[in-house]
Design a protein around this nucleic acid. Structure first.
Length: 163
DNA sequence: CGCATTTGACCCGCGC
DNA sequence: GCGCGGGTCAAATGCG
């Protein structure tokens, strides 16, 4: 896992770009007041809309009262590979094919001890150049690599509820 | 040897 | 109740 492209995100006032680097096009996140996050793909100058949801994490095998709500952020990236390096280490724990989609969806979990942040990656079926990554939960530990820091950007956009 | 990935089984909610 | 779709587990396998 050396030559995977880095995931670069920029807040709305920085980095004019229309180029790609290592197959990954820069995206720009534009926060909206209604909680909708729009990811603009400048390389194709069309607006890709993602959503922020509140997800109820279900009860675990007999347990209850784990009704915490987690932030869930999805964005789309135009890239050739689906493994985007966002600075965290992920362990893949599942892969399922989704109905009406020709490409399977992969499930990852943060490998940090007692950090149950999850993400899932799926490729668009009609345009296989687009990869949708959905993050669920919030890291409560520092990043392990110092590349573009997704958390920092999200934090400064005030889209996380205080934990 | 220690970790990550693979992959079918399992589980659970939901609609019929 | 049963099947289906989606999410997770875990044993086997792979790899540095």
């Amino acid at each position: 896992m050396e030559n995977h492209p880095k995931l670069f995100l920029a807040s709305s006032s920085t980095v004019p770009f229309s180029s790609n680097m290592n197959g990954v096009f820069y995206n720009r996140i534009v926060p909206e007041p209604d909680g909708i996050i729009k990811v603009k793909d400048h390389s194709f100058s069309k607006s890709l809309v993602s959503m922020k949801n509140e997800v109820k994490s279900g009860k675990k095998k007999g347990d209850d009262q784990m009704k915490t709500t987690k932030p869930r952020i999805a964005f789309q990236t135009r890239t050739k590979v689906d493994i985007l390096d966002d600075g965290y280490r992920w362990r893949k724990y599942g892969q399922k094919s989704v109905k009406n989609q020709k490409f399977p969806r992969s499930y990852y979990r943060c490998t940090h001890l007692s950090c149950n942040v999850k993400k899932q990656v799926q490729r668009q079926s009609e345009d296989e150049g687009i990869v949708v990554t959905t993050y669920e939960g919030r890291h409560m530990h520092p990043v392990e690599k110092h590349s573009a820091n997704f958390e920092q950007i999200l934090n400064q956009m005030h889209i996380y509820p205080p934990f």
